[in-house]
Design a protein around this nucleic acid. Sequence first.
DNA 1: TATGAATGAGTATTCATTCAT
DNA 2: GATGAATGAATACTCATTCAT
Lengths: 196, 196, 196, 196
Amino acid sequence: MPRQSPLRREGKEQHLLDAAYKLFLGKGVLKTSIDEIVREADVAKGTFYLYFHSKEELLQKLVDKISTRILSEAYQYTQQHLSPDFTENVVTMVDYIVEYFKHNKLQLQLLERNFSWPMVQQALSQQTDPLWRSLAQDLSKSPLAQRYTEDELFKLIFVLVEMCGSTCYSSIIEGKPDTIDHMKPVLYRIIRQSLS
Amino acid sequence: MPRQSPLRREGKEQHLLDAAYKLFLGKGVLKTSIDEIVREADVAKGTFYLYFHSKEELLQKLVDKISTRILSEAYQYTQQHLSPDFTENVVTMVDYIVEYFKHNKLQLQLLERNFSWPMVQQALSQQTDPLWRSLAQDLSKSPLAQRYTEDELFKLIFVLVEMCGSTCYSSIIEGKPDTIDHMKPVLYRIIRQSLS
Amino acid sequence: MPRQSPLRREGKEQHLLDAAYKLFLGKGVLKTSIDEIVREADVAKGTFYLYFHSKEELLQKLVDKISTRILSEAYQYTQQHLSPDFTENVVTMVDYIVEYFKHNKLQLQLLERNFSWPMVQQALSQQTDPLWRSLAQDLSKSPLAQRYTEDELFKLIFVLVEMCGSTCYSSIIEGKPDTIDHMKPVLYRIIRQSLS
Amino acid sequence: MPRQSPLRREGKEQHLLDAAYKLFLGKGVLKTSIDEIVREADVAKGTFYLYFHSKEELLQKLVDKISTRILSEAYQYTQQHLSPDFTENVVTMVDYIVEYFKHNKLQLQLLERNFSWPMVQQALSQQTDPLWRSLAQDLSKSPLAQRYTEDELFKLIFVLVEMCGSTCYSSIIEGKPDTIDHMKPVLYRIIRQSLS
DNA sequence: TATGAATGAGTATTCATTCAT
DNA sequence: GATGAATGAATACTCATTCAT
């Protein structure tokens, strides 16, 4: 028996996303069933399939949202602490993200190695997203732009992002090979040497 | 009802490993059920649990075997193509592994991000494994040993391995952001700059 | 793939209870699998877990229902054959139950030693169940109430119920040490002496 | 607390019995697998079937041994604290057993309602067991023997034993309806009234 | 006697997905 | 749109029992 929606338009979808987020963080994606998500969201089971085709699709939407938010925060922070040296700005931004994950283990666990994707995908597909447009412009105006082609630069950034992401995951989640604070110097030295 | 064993000692375990390897490569670890493994191995279901406690334990044994084999091959190859320059030897070894994965996509997919672990773990716990002993000795005799402490060196290597692993996975498995052949120059430049 | 429900509301649960009852009586609780219950009930396997958490929970519900019904029947019978002597009313009621089990071996086997529980538990926790309220009132109005405290009376009844239950089980199910008809005089003499 | 000293005589069988006893007490009969028994006994799996046909057969042998031992102890204790009043001797003996179970919950749990069997079975089948012969003689010499036939006496004792066993189990294991110390007066009053 | 590797039927439980209301 | 009872295939894991050695 269908009940009148007590929620506004898109209320259900947001409730499902929120419920899934909470459960995913709490007990992992794999151990969370759709049953639990709808129960937590206080929504009927069939409703789930009105908005998502599968748990994986929901996860992807969640990951995209989170990644974008963190990246945006990091960029804004960097703009507010701008240095004349481009490389230092990169390090500042990376450090913001590293610190974020250091204090939000669960989110890092959820994103796992999916963090970098949305960003890079958007980059390569010339997204109109204002965040990345700014980033791209900054990059093209940097001194590096004179030594590398745009394509080379993208790849360089991509590899460095992967490096940071993987190391964060290893060190923050699994404590290997050392704490993230002890890994930072190594990480940032490589970044500086690569961008110098 | 027990049937006469058609296989010699240790035959069953190897059959199970072989069957699992084949199925894991073919359809992924998650989609492979223990049921299928024992069917493929032509072994009774209970026999599986005689040798492994779970699918994950079997996977771990498999990953360890494969990782060690690839690493060993890479080291031997490098020894046979030795350069006086330490950095170049590192690049040679890394390149061997990258090429290996380029031609063995499925194995890379199976190992996913589990590749680096056994190696690094052994490193940090001063394993008596002859392979790593050699590597460690080479490292300690290299020019880098004068600039960095042993601990710093380990971390540096660790991060570079993570970087290569992640980039291989992204580029070989998902084709992002470009083919591995186009990623190599970026990768190796970072390695050379970091070890120079 | 859901099929149209061929049964009305609450039909499924009742079908499961009926099927379990039949199978439990026929081949024992332990030897009956959930698989068989759902097959007998012509219900999907998942449906079982919609109504019960385990076989034991289903058994408990079944035992409660049966116990209550027998007790209720016995009480009603006693009311219809009321004697002025309280002790004789107790014997009448006990005899009704003994006779019932004599003719329903299988039910006795199913209840085993679980029979007395629901009754006594309700008694001690001052249940609002009308059946036991009547029993309790009768007890408190009996001559015994002047010699014993309410608590002592409850314990006395409890022990006598245990005695009857155990002896029924031994004699009816296992024929030891004699037939129930030959045990009755012993049983009822003890009851009469205890309540005299 | 009586402990069984492991005897060399018939070593394997005794080892199996000891191992089963330990495990049954520790985690229950149902949850103990033959696998665990042979592991605990340090004996090969096949060896189990050389001595027992099933877990149930082993359990029965164990129960018989324990029951006989407790009964024997109780009888000896009573002989050492003999009263001129037969009824008081019965109460003394029952109390010994009740106290024993009060301090050996696990054994009571293991015996469950199987305690009385061996004793009564032996009684009815004119066992040559010296213990029961003594008991039978005492009974036939008691004042009761003049009011009841031997057969009636046996049944009376049987019912009283059942009553005590059930009440012990309920009160000691499940704490219902009260502690055994609070049930004793009720129990012993019924015994005294029945044998008076 | 004694062994223990091998068996495989059996069991409980989960969960994504559907669809009549 | 929204519901939620019903589905049943899928899966992991256990364990009594056998028998070649």
